[in-house]
Structure formats: C-alpha cells, structure tokens
Design a protein around this nucleic acid. Sequence first.
DNA 1: TTCCAGGGGTAGA
DNA 2: TCTACCCATGGA
Length: 329
Amino acid sequence: MSGRRRETTSGTTQTTLTTSATPPFDFAGTAYSNGWAVLAPNRWESDHCTLRRTERLGPGRVVYLAVTGDGSVRSPRIRIEVSHEGDLQASERAAVRSAVRRMFRLDEDLAPFHALCRTAGSRWEPASRGLGRLLRSPTLFEDAVKTICTTNVQWGGTKAMVRRLVEYLGEPGPPAGSTAETETRISVSGQDPNAFPTPEAIAAASGKTLEAARLGYRAPFIRELAERVASGDLDLEVLRRPELVTEDVRRRFLAIKGVGAYAAATLLMLVGRYDHLAVDSVYRAFVTERYFGGESPQDREAERIYDEWGKWKYLGFWYDLWQGPEEDL
DNA sequence: TTCCAGGGGTAGA
DNA sequence: TCTACCCATGGA
C-alpha cells in the first residue's frame, strides 16, 4: 500500500492509494459483475474502466473514490484515487483500503472455483482467469438493504429506489474541486451522489421521507432492519465470519423481515458462500430456455442443474448466465 | 387496463 | 411443509 497526495485549487485534496490483488484477478470483470456497480452511490464508467463511489468515513467525513485496475491479471494492482478535504489520516486510509478490498473481495480465495471452471468445459474455462469475485458493498447493511430492494421489482425500479434512499438520507461529500482532473470526473460522471445512508439515518427518517423514496411494501422491512442494526439488536457483520456454519448464517438471514429464500441466497453469496442458488425470475427464465427447451420446470428441478458445482453452485450459475443462452450445450 | 418484476409475510390447512 | 392471498410501485 502506498500513497501520493495532490492539492487542488478548491481546497479538495486528491490522495492516490494502491493495493494489490491475488492473481488471477480481472478488475473489470469484478467491478461490473452483478449490477452492484450501478447501484448508488456506486457508478461505473465503462469507457475508463473506473468504479466511482461516494464513501462515508465518519460523521461529516465523506470522500469520493475512483477505483481502477492496472490491467494485469498475473500481478494485479488496484489504484484508489481519494478526493477529500483536509488531511487523510492513516486510519482513514486504512478504512478506504479496507472498504475497497471488501468490495472487490481481494482476500477471498476463489482458487477452488477456478479449478472447477478449468474442468467444467470450454464454456467455463474463461472464468478461471480471474472472474467470480462479484462486487459487494463495504458493509453488509448496505448489501442487505440493496438486496431487499431487488425483490419483486424490475432492475430499473431497484436502481431508482436505491438512488432515492441515497439522495434523501445519505450524507453529501465535499464540493467538487476545479482542477482539470476533477473537471474530467464531473463531466464524465455527472453530479456526485451522497454516501449510502447509515442505519441510524434510515432508522431516524420521517415517514414522509421513506414514503418519498417509494420503496413500496419494502419500506417497513428496511426501516426495521435499520432500527435493529442501529440499536445493536442485530449485528450483521458477525455473519461474515467464516467459522460459522452456512445453514446457521442462512437461518439468520431468513430471520430478517423482507428476506426470503432468494434474498438469503443472495446475501450468502455476498458473504462468500455460494452453496445456495438465488432462484428468481431471471434464474427461471435462463434455465428454462437453456436446459428445458422452453418448458418451465418446477423450481426443485431447475435447481438441480447446478448440483455438480456443490458449494460453488451460485458462481457456476452466475457464469453460465454471464455467458448467455446462445452457445451450444 | 392488466400483468408481473432480480419475492416475501401471513394465515390456514 | 404447502398453498392461497395479499402486499406498493412502476414499466411493458
């Protein structure tokens, strides 16, 4: 990890940090892997292969991140440009590095999955070259709120709900600077969004504010989740611990109101457990077309398609979907 | 207007 | 454990 700082004319400072990833690692294939890259406060610039994000480091302390890869698969490095006011303390640099490493799963061992891909046939072989690290959020709270916002709604609705939550309840970052580099950022990405709202902010939101976010029947679920996390009644982060039994983690996800089988499987994926498939309309449509000749199977039958992937079945399906239905079986 | 989405909660069997 | 019904919202 290294750092370099540069003053701008607006009082905003840009500090560049770098961190490494264990090869094989595909930066773009990780950042733009599952849709999370376009849910606020993330935004994906495909032209520059850059993931941007507004990140809250503490009360009144919000920074902008621009994350890029160096294109190397074998000795990959990640560059994090932090736009901030004042000095970026050592603890804040560590927090930024930790957030990015968690988002890109840089400490997750996918070697067994990649090994499976090399033996699963030509369709999956490309995934062994650094794919399968599905983007996630710095906190499990943010991931849980976003997952609930994916239920029973089209993707455009999910994006709109999350965008409104961020706009109405997130903390704004510092005003944009005026250097050429910063102006490039503005011209490319538009107005920077707020940071993702804290559990406390959502718990304390007025009824009118949540109503304006148009979360529909999800609003009381998200409110209750925020209240439980803010009060300390629910510690989501402990569910990331690898020593926990997957089925216990799943039961604890299912105990969250608004989380059913689909959302629990999604959250398990987000904590690095791929044993369960998130069977939704996308899954059903894909396997119906690719494996059942267009005739809708029962869910149990549909799930058996990926049995051979064992504890990696979520990623087995994810890459199958990524490849699309066209290729011959 | 009707259907349904990257479903889930609840009641009743 | 299974089914039926209901749940806001918005796009097609």
